[in-house]
Design a protein around this nucleic acid. Structure first.
Lengths: 374, 374
DNA sequence: CCCAGTGCTGCAAAGGTTTGCAGTGAAGTA
DNA sequence: TACTTCACTGCAAACCTTTGCAGCACTGGG
């Protein structure tokens, strides 16, 4: 039923190789023949079978993009940017979602392996060693994570976290919470490290809440703990969690930013729509998507799949680029000066009663929180 | 460099067909041989080439999912549901985004055609005839649209629009705006038709604003026109536009729902996070994704790709299922009674000065809006 | 002793395409 | 005329699997 190159050859009275060339190297075939073949192909509705073509050329002109959670609005801009960049270079992007599940990630890399020319691994949750192993099966570019020997594009979320914490200490906050993200996240480790250092430098104490799923619910679920801990400001793993936390605090009667300041990370579109508008660390997601595609395609054209280049197994560790993109703190309405009644060690000046803090049931230090730095 | 079945055969001292069977029909090979082959395969890191396998079996175990705009939070739940359903049946889903561009849709169907066993076309913007034509190239299931002769899963957005308008007329609104979606959208036509009928039945006048891109910006861009038109309530093509409209109205000093009521469609997660919480028509996106996968896979198993079944060209139009899923109005905080000072024809009782309407510069009727029904 | 059956494995064709090489005929050159 | 060049086209191998069929060595029954 499906029409093949053979049908077209028969219909137009030429050999299949001529039909093939009509599509993949038109300048090699006589113009007259070409139009005839093209006409027949059009007639029959022939389309070259891309799978069969890939089998022999070793090129699919597809890119796989594996995403931890497509429902997180952080990713769509990255996806769009990658797609647009790929389109310019005549590639298609296939996206797959893993539900934050490491085993699904591995599974998907295998599934994609021979159907794409390379895979963009976005915020992977699996182990470094597994990633390295998979990279022998198909060219990989890792986004939002650093793994040695592989091309990576990262966002300098450490710098962002530092700026955020400095912003908070600058506002007088001395007891800051860190709303942690998912286990296994490189970004999470970076944030934690840098925020810890910045807090120490600013004379503040950092309390960790987590790990949590990086979702609105994940943020909201810690509202009670945050309230009880007595922190006056929180840096969240991402905007979604920050928004969830604000929601949760709100329903507990804690106002943002009057009672507690909250800052997110990512600067998703949504962060401009909530009330209060979210102070957050903007990450260059579009640039990340574009760069990742570029790096993959460059690596791909450098290393011909077939024929020469029979890379001498060892010792040709290509100079794998690792790209670090800058982030930027965007100050909006969810952060403010430390509340007058807040028990900050630095002894913020009390300016009268001010807004009433919610009841604090005798648990002035971290409730479930672990003190990371002080 | 890539290790093939031949390498494994050589290493384990058997014929390639035995290796093949070890993976695709293990019960046909001697247990001893099997473990030896498996060991060698493991050793060499062999993975069957899915593209080559697909070439001969005619099955890829992949499903393509083409989405109009991945950044629209309406889609992720559908994608997730489809993926999970597919996973249960041992299929993978590849998602592709078209940026609401009809030509990208066609392009993508071709690109996916031979690399998947079928394609789910979600909210397509191309013409019916083109869709039918493409369906001869690869099995198709259409979501959010009705096209004759093809399996479709739709949401009864007409019923939803009707409920929404009835809700509004029940609140006393007699001048209702319809914030239209993108050109070429089946959903848009359905909404318009049903909303028009419901308005007529309720004695209300319906004013159309649009078409617009189905985004926050698309909704916000009509805020000025909506204000000038004098409508007291608006039904938006989707939640995103509703939210954008609310934002836009807010910055014009028009309050929702006191001055104008707004209802969206889709019930995306975001609609519970905005202030005011959005009244909207909930659409069963998860069920749609699951059903679409089921329909595709059923159709796929019915029709063996190779060998028998050589369908007699005409006359075997399989009874193509068309599924209509129910929708439901969710009343939250963005709708309220018609404002006392509103110039409604039904003559709502004036209850004193009430909230001041914004200045209306002598343009009491539809500004750019087209009256659809009255 | 023959035959059928069983359990496993090898053989080779098939799937749709690309591509190096060789062959064709015609035109151009000496 | 003979030789080269040129533009085009056909041939066949190759890519990596799967799978129907046949062959093999045994076993057990008649």
């Amino acid at each position: 039923m499906p029409v093949t190159i053979r049908d077209v050859a028969r219909a137009s009275g030429v050999h299949i190789s001529t039909v093939s060339r009509t599509f993949s190297a038109p300048h090699l075939v006589n113009p007259e023949t070409r139009v005839r073949v093209l006409a027949c192909a059009e007639d029959l509705g022939y389309r070259p079978n891309r799978a069969a073509r890939a089998l022999i050329t070793g090129r699919t002109h597809n890119i796989g993009l594996i995403i931890a959670d497509i429902a997180n609005p952080f990713f769509p801009p990255l996806i769009k940017a990658a797609e647009s960049q790929a389109r310019h270079r005549d590639y298609h992007v296939f996206v797959a979602d893993t539900n934050e599940d490491p085993s699904a990630e591995e599974e998907l890399v295998h599934a994609l392996a021979k159907q794409v020319d390379g895979v963009l691994l976005c915020s992977p949750r699996m182990s470094n060693s597994l990633i390295e192993q998979l990279s022998r099966e198909v060219p990989l570019v890792v986004i939002n994570r650093q793994v040695a020997g592989l091309p990576c594009v990262m966002m300098d979320v450490g710098q962002g976290a530092r700026s955020a914490v400095e912003h908070l200490t600058g506002l007088g906050h001395r007891r800051i919470g860190l709303l942690g993200g998912p286990r296994g996240s490189w970004t999470n480790r970076e944030i934690r490290r840098s925020a810890g250092a910045a807090a120490r430098a600013g004379g503040a104490e950092l309390t960790l809440f987590g790990p949590n799923p990086p979702t609105v619910a994940g943020g909201g679920g810690q509202a009670e703990q945050v309230r009880r801990s007595g922190v006056t400001a929180v840096l969240a793993y991402n905007d979604l969690m920050a928004i969830g936390l604000i929601e949760g605090l709100d329903s507990l009667g804690v106002r943002v930013p009057q009672d507690v300041s909250v800052v997110g990370i990512d600067d998703i579109a949504l962060s401009r729509l909530t009330r209060p508008k979210l102070t957050t660390v903007a990450t260059p997601t579009g640039a990340a998507g574009r760069s990742a595609v570029d790096m993959l395609l460059q690596q791909d054209t450098e290393a011909p799949r077939r024929g020469l280049g029979r890379s001498t197994a060892s010792g040709d560790r290509r100079t794998t680029a690792q790209l670090m993109l800058q982030t930027e703190l965007v100050i909006r309405d969810s952060t403010g000066p430390v509340p007058p009644t807040g028990r900050t060690r630095a002894g913020a000046v009390s300016e009268g009663p001010g807004p009433q803090r919610p009841a604090d049931p005798g648990c002035p230090r971290a409730a479930t929180g672990e003190v990371v730095a002080s």
